[in-house]
Design a protein around this nucleic acid. Sequence first.
DNA 1: CCACAGACTTGACCGATTCAAGAAAATGCG
DNA 2: CGCATTTTCTTGAATCGGTCAAGTCTGTGG
Lengths: 172, 172
Amino acid sequence: MTTSGSTGETMARAAERLRSAGMRVTVPRMAVLMAVSDSEGHLDADSLRGLAQRITGRLSLQATYNVLRALTDAGLVRTTQIAGHPARYETERHDNHHHFVCRACGSIRDVECAVGAAPCMEPRLPADYDTQEAAVTFWGLCPGCRAAAPLPGLSPQHEHLRRHGSMPGSSR
Amino acid sequence: MTTSGSTGETMARAAERLRSAGMRVTVPRMAVLMAVSDSEGHLDADSLRGLAQRITGRLSLQATYNVLRALTDAGLVRTTQIAGHPARYETERHDNHHHFVCRACGSIRDVECAVGAAPCMEPRLPADYDTQEAAVTFWGLCPGCRAAAPLPGLSPQHEHLRRHGSMPGSSR
DNA sequence: CCACAGACTTGACCGATTCAAGAAAATGCG
DNA sequence: CGCATTTTCTTGAATCGGTCAAGTCTGTGG
């Protein structure tokens, strides 16, 4: 009901969200916003385009990028860039959570802040630095890949991933 | 003495470092290794190529990338990728320090771990996740840009930078 | 229902990085 | 020392994620 079929309900809600963010309401925007909301997050522009097309029928990749930027600027969507991966988009929840990235399969998982609203937000820096935000990325192996790994910490797909630039620490 | 002229001393040391890392000793490798060591770090491949060329005279960009990867794999160089910036390279010091990135000018500054060797290294994750590393990036304004900013937190160059993809938080 | 700003489509373009093929150079060995 | 083997470097093309630009289409306000 929320994915492809009668999306009436969600359409209306998406329209409302756009409107109250002061944005024009268009089919592509509703579709992308719904795609981001429906997905578990962490999808890239092209995947979201695919989902959105199930609603709009046709949607250019460029439009997808435009919409995603507009939604990000409006504070409805959060953009996350992870080294070696295309940008991912998720619903902005204003909780400044972080991400765990599996070095083997590339999957991403949300990680809540360990302490309060901003862990690690106290860098050892001179007072005249204006620190606005801290982004934390955890690297490791997800349960599935960990089980499949011959040696703990070194999976078969690891080498492949490394070559795709998953920073940091290539550890070969 | 360490930059362009008689680089004998450093050349020899670079050769030694390569050798003890089990790598073949070549002029391009020594040159790039010296370039990384001499710089304050945080230079991208093309800049390092420029520095290295002052020693080798000629060095392809492709070779620079090859060398940097080899050095990274060998644990002599640390690669850092920051959203919206090309990859930066610095001498591997095995201290897992983090980075502060200025949203206005894009400059990068090292930040020591606030607590022990691995702050934020305790993600709220199920026990079957194998967390190997935590990368923390602080975003904000460096002293210079902060002073130049008309409104605190929003510099004149900010918009420009945002459009170049400096994640996270576009805050327009 | 019209006009106009803002949004979509298409297609060229770009920066960072990698792939591929051949030439050059480094180490091992006789 | 001189060659063979293997790795590395050079050159040039290609890929990938993403942006720019020009023209057409469509919300929205009047």
